[in-house]
Simulated scan of single mutants.
Amino acid sequence: MDDKATLHRYLRTRRGQLLAKLDGLGEYECRRPMTPTGTNLLGLVKHVASVELGYFSDVFGRPSGRDLPWFDDAAEPDADMWATAGETRDEIVELHRFSAAHSDATIESLPLDAPGVVPWWPEERRHVTLQQMLVHMCAETAQHLGHADILRELIDGAAGQGPNDPNLPARSAAGQSAHFDRLEAAAREAAAHATT
């Protein structure tokens, strides 16, 4: 597998994992702000789909024909990070799929060294290659997937990539509670030592 195929596979995998964080949740749960800054699952999907569409369309002169009003100059700050009551979950999931398909077409049709320009970046950094954008979007998607992992666990306890995730130890509810209590005790003990 060449470098482009490897990067593309990582991006596709993280996209799918992010979208899967909505599975089984109702409208409230997927939109619910879970942090003081308002971070929510559906907003993360909307944001990642939106920025990916920009990076693999406008940057490489391959317009998507899709208008994203939350990026207009008159839009409120962070409008891409949450879904209004009038924006449906299905619309945002469809945007995610549209963005992925458009991005995939760009990635498949250009070589890794294809030049692009990110007009919203500072002048000294705006000249990029497809490889840079692939790495950037892999990192951005993984970062927001990490946020989504935590939010989903706070919402209903679902952790990682599901119950068979090999990166999570299998614990019973009692075992998980004991593990949590052990970490809490260690944190309190460390804090007590730090103040003495």
Rank of each mutant, 00 (worst) to 15 (best):
6 T>W: 03
19 L>P: 03
189 E>S: 14
59 V>Y: 00
154 L>F: 02
51 V>E: 07
102 H>P: 01
8 H>Y: 02
47 H>A: 06
174 A>G: 10
44 L>I: 08
143 Q>S: 12
85 A>W: 04
67 D>G: 07
4 K>Q: 05
146 G>F: 05
73 D>F: 01
192 A>T: 12
3 D>T: 13
29 E>V: 08
166 P>K: 15
119 P>D: 04
190 A>N: 13
104 D>N: 03
115 P>L: 09
20 A>C: 06
117 V>C: 14
97 R>S: 08
135 V>R: 14
160 G>H: 07
99 S>I: 04
120 W>E: 09
91 E>S: 14
143 Q>R: 15
150 I>T: 06
122 P>M: 13
128 V>Y: 00
178 A>G: 05
154 L>V: 04
74 A>M: 13
110 L>E: 04
78 D>R: 14
51 V>Q: 09
65 G>D: 06
123 E>N: 11
50 S>T: 13
119 P>W: 00
105 A>F: 00
191 A>C: 06
179 H>Y: 08
102 H>W: 01
37 T>S: 14
158 A>L: 06
178 A>F: 02
20 A>E: 08
156 D>W: 01
110 L>F: 01
91 E>D: 12
3 D>R: 15
10 Y>L: 15
89 R>Q: 09
185 A>D: 04
181 D>V: 10
100 A>N: 07
119 P>C: 03
124 E>R: 15
31 R>I: 03
43 G>Q: 05
127 H>D: 04
137 M>L: 15
104 D>F: 00
68 L>P: 04
35 T>L: 14
28 Y>E: 15
84 T>I: 05
137 M>H: 08
39 T>K: 15
128 V>A: 05
159 A>Q: 14
136 H>I: 06
177 S>C: 06
65 G>Y: 04
167 N>C: 13
88 T>D: 11
150 I>N: 10
175 G>N: 08
167 N>P: 01
38 G>E: 01
140 E>C: 03
45 V>T: 06
9 R>S: 15
120 W>S: 09
159 A>P: 00
15 R>Y: 01
124 E>K: 15
80 D>L: 13
166 P>H: 12
125 R>W: 03
